[in-house]
C-alpha cells in the first residue's frame, strides 16, 4: 500500500474516533437528561460499539492491503463475518440488561455509524490515491 493509502486510513481512524467521542459526549448528556444513569451508560456503550465495529473494517482493509490478494480477501471477509457474529452476541447480551436504555443506545449507535460513514466518504473523496504504488 502506498503512503497515500496509509495516510487515508490513519486520517479516517483518527477523525472517526474524534467524531464518535463527540457523539458519545453529546449523546451521554442527552441520555442522562432523558433516562438518568442508564441513559448515560447506554450512550457510551452505543458510541463505543459503533467505533469498534466500524473501525475494524477500515483496519482490516488497511492491514489486509499489506498481504497478497488472497490474504486480503480472507482477512477482510473473515473479519467481517466474525465481527457480525460478535455484534449479534453483544446485542443479545445487552438486550435484557437493567443498566441499558434501549432507544438511547440505538440512536447513539446510529448517529455514530452515520457520522463515521460521512467521515469515511469525505476522507475518501479528498484522498489522492496514486495508480502506481511507491
Amino acid at each position: 500500500m502506498s503512503k497515500a493509502i496509509n495516510g487515508l486510513f490513519r486520517r479516517v481512524l483518527i477523525q472517526g474516533s474524534l467524531l464518535t467521542a463527540t457523539i458519545a459526549i453529546i449523546g451521554g448528556g442527552i441520555g442522562f437528561a432523558v433516562a438518568g444513569q442508564p441513559g448515560l451508560i447506554s450512550a457510551l456503550i452505543g458510541a463505543a460499539l459503533a467505533l469498534g465495529f466500524v473501525s475494524l473494517t477500515a483496519l482490516s482493509v488497511w492491514l489486509g492491503g499489506k498481504l497478497p490478494l488472497g490474504g486480503f480477501f480472507g482477512l477482510v471477509l473473515g473479519g467481517w463475518i466474525v465481527k457480525l457474529v460478535a455484534f449479534i452476541l453483544v446485542i443479545g447480551a445487552l438486550k435484557g440488561a437493567d443498566f441499558i436504555n434501549g432507544p438511547v443506545l440505538f440512536f447513539t449507535l446510529v448517529a455514530s455509524i452515520l457520522g463515521t460513514l460521512a467521515v469515511d466518504s469525505l476522507a475518501f473523496l479528498k484522498a489522492r490515491i496514486p495508480v502506481v504504488g511507491d
Binding site: I88, G102, L105, V110
Partner: peptide, 11 residues
Amino acid sequence: ALALIGLATPF
C-alpha cells in the same frame, strides 16, 4: 452500516 443498524433494532 445497514447490517449494524438492522441488528440493533431490537433496542
